[in-house]
Write a protein that binds this DNA or RNA. Structure first.
Lengths: 219, 219
DNA sequence: AGATAATTTAAACAATTGTTTAACATATTG
DNA sequence: CAATATGTTAAACAATTGTTTAAATTATCT
């Protein structure tokens, strides 16, 4: 054996984290096996349990890191400063959200998506902790757009409409870019993400205006 | 052994199909094991391979049956006859779609959801075959609502907005009804499905009107 | 009833896979 | 340099799990 080239374990750990993240995002927790992670990361089969104690713990660590990197790359406000009109801030937020979700380098959201469909439960705590604050911000922006007469119910329903519009297109758009395995639906949405985001913004602002109007008349 | 009470295999097959469907919907393909299916269906561990050749084939058969039952219970047009104005037909379609998706007895959509997040690939053919026609119908209804000046791009984007709004809420709503395991998000949408559907319809019709207006002016 | 086919059963099989172990190699510290 | 801690390796382990097999049982047909 001549390939024992120990540094200080940091690099090994980092490689595992990186490879594991990609595989978890691609195949999900259950379908990702030690053997492949270690082979692709070029580390020994025992390395995962040495550095991360368990597969479960590696999963959580991989997501946390990915989420941090994702928010760093795509700031939530989309670069639109707090002073600008709510419609503009809304646009910045949606655009950034969709860019973040559809970024092929961003594995974070792929993992969340799988976790929603088939929860392992391991990410519950970390996700709530990370996502709740963002959600609160979105809600207060929607509240602002809806005006003072809108109820909390209006806010929640509109938030739901908006998020729903962002979610699936982003997923499809991302898959379109990757190797086109794993596809099953019909057409894969041949628009770029900015086009989609613009549409979502216009569509949603129209919907919000409608709700705002109705709120005035006590629907 | 006194519990060999063979009928004609039809009942055994049916019980497997029923139990397997529920488990696939709850846990996904990979997390569902022969042992549990057979235990809950009260059949021998070898019965799956005898009656269905393989787990994969059982998966496809279970989905197909569930999809048939689902459409039988919730007809696509929501009971609104073809003659009525498009807005009404739209409402019927959305309401029926959301009822279908959120029906706790309907395992079909739960399976589709998991398949979208983590595709096994086994359902690709059956899904395309079953879902394409429905999608075509929806598109032509949206086209009608958008008016003659709208482009194909407009139709696709609006369809996307509408479907996106239906999807996630239905999933959340369904989970809320079940045993509240597997939940992770914050609030689970405390509205009944009709309220949500009504909102989606109003919100979407407002969005569509906006797009229709813009189409006239060549956006 | 006897022969044949279909179904059910229990056991075994073969492959996968997360984890542990103990020897070995390298770094760090005194 | 010696001693200790840390990282790496290969092998083994233990548990899970989809599938097959052969015998036993029951239905169907002549």
């Amino acid at each position: 054996m001549d390939k024992i080239r120990r540094k200080d374990g940091v690099e090994t750990r980092a490689r595992i984290l990186e490879v594991a993240g990609r595989l978890f995002a691609e195949k999900g927790f259950r379908n990702t096996i030690h053997e492949e992670i270690c082979r692709l990361a070029d580390v020994n089969i025992g390395a995962i349990n040495y550095h991360f104690r368990s597969k479960e713990n590696l999963y959580v660590e991989a997501w946390k890191m990915a989420f941090r990197q994702s928010l760093e790359k795509h700031p939530v406000d989309g670069g639109v400063p707090p002073g600008t009109p709510p419609e503009e801030r809304f646009r910045g937020r949606i655009l950034s959200f969709m860019r973040r979700m559809s970024d092929p380098e961003n594995i974070e959201f792929e993992i969340v998506h799988k976790e929603m469909a088939t929860p392992t439960g391991f990410l519950a705590g970390a996700m709530r902790e990370s996502l709740d604050p963002l959600r609160k911000e979105t809600q207060s922006l929607v509240r602002e757009l809806l005006g003072g007469k809108a109820t909390e119910k209006d806010v929640q329903l509109c938030e739901m409409s908006i998020m729903g519009q962002c979610f699936n297109p982003a997923v499809l758009h991302k898959r379109r870019k990757g190797q086109n395995k794993n596809r099953f639906g019909p057409k894969p949405l041949d628009f770029d993400i900015e086009t989609i985001a613009d549409h979502v913004v216009s569509f949603s602002l129209a919907g919000i205006r409608e709700m705002r109007k109705r709120a005035g008349k006590g629907g």
